[in-house]
């Protein structure tokens, strides 16, 4: 069986390079989350997304502003 889904924060990016910058920045600053394939609820295409708990929105947004990463979109979806 697949894991039980939870509502999560999912950030998509314009490019893979942006997604990698996000992972690097989060690792360096101990920010939560991990890379996942973009869920179909967001886009049928390919790509990487950053998935983290709903309560991390503010921390991640601050981090991204600080290091200059621009997300394409920020979603809440069941992962």
């Amino acid at each position: 069986m697949m894991r039980k889904k939870e509502l999560k924060l999912v950030l998509t990016f314009h490019t893979t390079a942006d997604a990698m910058a996000m992972e690097k920045a989060c690792k360096e600053q101990n920010a939560p989350g991990r890379l996942i394939p973009v869920p179909r609820a967001i886009s049928a295409g390919c790509g990487l997304a950053w998935c983290a708990g709903l309560d991390t929105r503010h921390i991640l947004k601050q981090l991204m502003d600080r290091v200059g990463i621009e997300e394409q979109d920020m979603h809440e979806c069941m992962i």
Binding site: R3, I36, P37, V38, A41, I79
Partner: peptide, 10 residues
């Protein structure tokens, strides 16, 4: 009808 990205992630 699972999302293929979820299956791949799992």
């Amino acid at each position: 009808d699972y999302d293929s990205s979820e299956v791949s992630d799992e």
